[in-house]
Structures are given as C-alpha cells and as structure tokens.
Design a binder for these strands. Structure first.
Lengths: 255, 255
DNA sequence: ATAAAGGGTGACGTAAGGTCAGTGTCAATA
DNA sequence: TATTGACACTGACCTTACGTCACCCTTTAT
C-alpha cells in the first residue's frame, strides 16, 4: 500500500507542508520515491506518524521525538502504553484546570471581591509533575541506549570496516588528541571555544564511525578518561594532566 | 498589593521574560512603574494573567486572547465558566487519545500484524470539534461586539441624514433588489459573476451609508434573510424564492 | 491537446518566547 | 561608605514548527 502526500494528509490530518518538513528533518522519511521525485508513504510510515502525533500531543519537541523513535531500544507497543498513561495524566491536569476555572468563577460574587488566595489561583497550572514524568520517559529510552545498545550498534558497524576505514579513524583520533595536547600545553582553558570545538568534532566522529554519541554517552566517556587507568595513560602519554583536561572539557561541553 | 516581576513569576510560574513580552505586546500591562522603571503588578493584573493562562491552555493565540480580554463585552465570571467547559472538552479529547493509544497497543500482537484500519488510527486526532467550539467562543465576543458596535455606528451616521439622503438610499436599495430579482428569474446562478457583483455593491453600500460591513456581518445578514420572516417576505415579494437565492449568493461571496 | 489537480524546491514570514550582552538599582553587609 | 550580590531594564539575535508564496514540473481527465 503506497500513499501520496495528499492521501496521507487526508488520512491523518497532517498538512502536506508538515510531511515535507518531517522528511527534511529526517523524522519521517517516505518509504519510496517515484521517478519524478514524488513521495510515497507506506503503512510503516503511517504507524510512525501516529507515534509522532501522540508524542506531539504530549508536547515533546520534534528533536526529542526523533531521539525516541529512532532509538533501537524503541518498542512501539510499550511506547503506546506509556503514551496512554501520559495522555491520561495530561487529561487529568486539564480536568483540574477546568475545576479551577469553575471554582474561580464562583468566587466572584457579583462585584463583591471574595478574593481567592493568589497562589491557589495558579496552583493547577504547575506542570512540574507532568514534565518530570515526561523527562523520565524520554530518559528511559536514552538511558538503556547508553549501555547495551551503543555497544551493539558499534559492533555491527565496525564489523564491516575495511583497513582503509581503520586508517582513516586512527588518523582522525591522532589529530584530535594532538590538537588537544597542543592547546593544553599552550595553557588554553578547557572551556574555550577552540577546545570545545575539538570536543564537538570528537563527538561527531564517534557518531559517524561507531554509534550515536549522545551527550549522555559523551559524558560517560569523559568520566572514564580519568577513572580508567588505561585511558588516562593514553592521554597522559601526550602530556601530563591531559586526561583531566580533556575530561573537564567534555564535562563543560555536556552541560 | 504590588508585586515585582520576580514575585509574579514565582506565584504564577510564568517566566520574567514572558511577563516583559506580554507587557510589550500590550497584553498585560503592569499597573505601575517605579521611578527606576521597574514593573509593578497588582491583583487585577494577576486576575488577568490567570485569564490569559486559561486561554493559552486552550491554545488561543496571544492575539486572540488580547481581543477576547480587551473586548468591552468581556465578563470575567462568564468567561471562566466557558473556559471551564472548554477545558473539560479538551480533557475528554485527551482521554479519547489515551484510549486510542492503549487500543492501538493491544492491536499489536507480537510481530503478527492485526493491523487496525488506517483511518481509525488517526480518528481521535481530529481537532475540528474543539476548534469549532473555540471559534465559537472567540466569535461570541466579537459577534456581540460587531453587532452592538455596528448598530451604534449606524445610529450615529444616520442621525445626520437628510431626506435627500434617505431618498438616495431607498433608490439604491430598490435598484439592487430589482436587479437581483431579474437575474434570479433569468435563471442565472447565485455564484455567477453578475450576481456576486451585486452582492459586493450591496456590501459597499452598507459600509458607505451605515456601518463598516465586514464579511462576518454580511454573512449574518444573509442568514437573517432566510431566517427572519419579515425579510424573507420583503424579498419574496419580488420573486418567490428570492430570499433563499440572495442568501446563497451572500454565503458564496463570504467564503 | 490542454487544463486542472497535484507534486516539487527554495525563500521568506510568523508566533511565542529563550538566550545573551551590557547596564542600572537596591538592600545588606564589611 | 563602599562594595557586593540579587534583581531589574533594554535590545539584539536565536529557535521551533510550521505557513505562505512564487515558480516550475507531472499526472490525470476530458
């Protein structure tokens, strides 16, 4: 079953522009294209789109949504159940707000001011409880990702690497650490733009060649560089104290 | 009771930046200013802010909110009651979505595809019911505003009209309706250019001689021409069914 | 064969703030 | 009295998630 943009738009209520946008940012890539470059969606696309819409309804940003649904840890069935819970929670918040509105309206006796407590007037608007759970949900996926998953992805990727690839990788790694060492010896701060740029390059490098290196994972690496003697030795070979320096730079970058 | 930005921010959960923004766009002007230019809010400001937050929760745009709360027709108590209803409606939509999520999750049996109907998968996302009511709410205020206001404008204008003016007015009205009747009898469609031109002339005529006849108001007139027996009789005197014809022409024009 | 309907890209616009830089003010403390 | 830290101000630019517009190409129906 292939659907054109228009059809998808009609089935789902999402505008054509939005579909093109989601394609562009890589959130929802159509399953295929015609020769003329027309987008063609399939049933999987529709299922994903439904997921996206649920998550949007819960006010996740598109970026977060992308992280969530592209995680290999992602299990649609489990996700739907969690989403159901969160939607209920949100509904309850709205119910409470509705009650507050009614209650407030009753506290207005004609022109007499039976004024409510000010804080009470805004109590139900508080979103922290929901936000907290949202973060937990977004986190749940990422957390596990960091551990088992990154490793497996890395294994899968590197299995196919040629000698050429490995050369390239070593070359980059060497260049990156040498630049770090140079700046470190020059006394440049770990928080400086130059150093931070190197950290960013490093993160991108890991992502490109091994696994999706999120900030959480990167932070983990940074900690390891000082905690694990082998890594520490590797860095300190270039300059005494470089491990700590790099670790600091990474911590700062991940804030 | 005067509150600083920080205090308001703490009581309501709205950020300082947002408060400044609302001030800038004229949505929530602080009751006073210190000599140094510090904003000072009072209890009325807080009440208004609560209103704003309710309306935001209902996804009204700030512009709409401004229109609503600055309307002369605005009655806070009534508004709170309406808002309570709308919030409940929104909560129910979320409940339905939650159920859909659960239902969808159950339709996934391991890897077996008990696929749901595609349209069903997106049914509950449809916002038209809520949007409709929202428009109604935003409209309600404007409606009354438009009417009473147009009426007063009209009164002011016509008070100064001479007999000469009235003759001119009657003449136009007669000519307009007669042309309508002629085209109608000839079987010309209500959507045709000729008829539409007459409608446009009519709108301009009202605007010039009575009050600013917006499309909204014109639409209202069109509805009245069939709903109100006296108007209906006036038109049907020229030709049986003319009232409906004119009404249709106006509806088409106002799209 | 031609028009209408649908598709494409790219550029620009918008709403509702967030973020940052630079500066002024107030209350309390040293 | 001087200073310091919290709080305030403005203005400029950044961001997200699209809408809108202009302009051009395909597909389908007549």
């Amino acid at each position: 079953m292939a659907y054109t943009v228009k059809q998808v738009s009609e089935i789902t209520g999402v505008t054509k522009r939005t579909l093109r946008f989601y394609d562009k940012i890589g959130l929802l890539r159509p399953a295929g294209m015609t020769e003329a470059g027309y987008r063609l969606y399939d049933d999987n696309n529709l299922e994903l789109l439904q997921q996206i819409m649920f998550l949007r309804e819960l006010d996740f940003s598109l970026k977060q949504i992308k992280d969530i649904v592209t995680s290999s840890q992602y299990d649609r069935k489990q996700a739907l159940i969690r989403q159901g819970e969160l939607l209920n929670r949100k509904a309850e918040r709205l119910k409470a707000l509705a009650e507050l509105a009614i209650k407030t309206s009753r506290s207005i006796e004609g022109s007499v001011n039976t004024s409510m407590n000010k804080k009470e007037m805004f109590k139900e608007f508080d979103m922290s409880r929901i936000t907290e759970h949202k973060n937990k949900y977004a986190g749940e996926v990422k957390q596990r990702w960091g551990n088992t998953d990154a490793y497996m992805e890395s294994q899968a990727k590197t299995a196919a690497y040629t000698e050429e690839d490995w050369k390239r990788i070593h070359k980059f790694q060497l260049s990156n650490v040498e630049q770090m060492a140079r700046l470190f010896k020059q006394g440049v701060a770990a928080e400086s733009d130059e150093v931070q740029r190197l950290v960013k390059e490093f993160q991108q490098f890991i992502t490109d060649n091994f696994y999706n290196c999120t900030k959480d994972i990167l932070r983990g690496l940074g900690e390891m560089y000082v905690a694990d003697e082998r890594f520490k030795a590797y860095f300190d070979k270039y300059a005494e104290g470089l491990a700590v320096f790099v670790s600091k730079a990474i911590q700062h970058y991940c804030k």
